[in-house]
Amino acid sequence: MIPDTFDYSAPVTLTEAIELLSSGAKALAGGQSLIPLMKLRLASPQHLVDLSRIPELSGIREENGVLHIGAMTTHYEIESSMLLRSACPLLPQTAGRIGDVQIRNMGTIGGSIAHADPASDYPAALLALDATVRIAGAGGFRTVSYEDLLVDSFLVALEPGEVIVDIMAPVDPPNTGTCYVKAPQAASGFAIVGVAVRAVKSDGVVSSARVGVTGLAAKPFRARSVEQALGGTRGTDADITRAAALVGDGVDANSDLHASADYRKHLAEVYLRRALRAALI
């Protein structure tokens, strides 16, 4: 279980990292997905660029109602951030369910979303939060919605030479309810299905609902039919049951030895009901 040989650089500036990545090197974040793949020789990059020594890629801050989370911020830092726990509790709740404590100590949010494992936890939360992602490349910076970054299983819309700088999510407005729940695969902890909800109520009526679903399909997605069904209701148990039943409609669900497509859809509905009840009732 030893990786193939490779060259290694640990630049301290973003410019230097982008130069190296533009010449075909592969980015190394926390390594908690990449190193296992390299040990199995499923990936054999010739040159790794360790992003951990670049200061501007780390840390969590708030600016004008927007939270900025550096790409190299670890799951543990997100899980334990007092700022996020009060301003955006969905992210710490989600980060705290990833893998185990050792993995959360090393693994990073930027690495996780760039790897784009369809059973990873963050996508559900980031979709429910309408998160955006700032990306740096040789031509400067660009910002895309997290939803647009997702292309397919293990594939995101990053060009060669580009690197994720930070992830942005809004501070929760008053009367926001959020929840992430998942059916974990027993051995790995990855989500067979994971559902994140962010709902805002005003005058007792659901004024905005966002539902992100991971694990169910090749690409994590926003369950827009569920969101629409909830909007304008009072978010009662009956409203929740009716809306959650729509989550699997028209979805080409994953099927593997852990769960068939039909069972995954069933789990998605059950877990979505739980998440909605926690967020709304």
């Binding site: 279980m1 640990a10 190193i35 050792q102 993995i103 100590n105 090393m106």
Partner: peptide
């Protein structure tokens, strides 16, 4: 911080 040393490169 606890880490799994089988999943960390010595250079890291």
């Amino acid at each position: 911080k606890a880490v799994k040393a089988c999943t960390v490169l010595a250079v890291q």
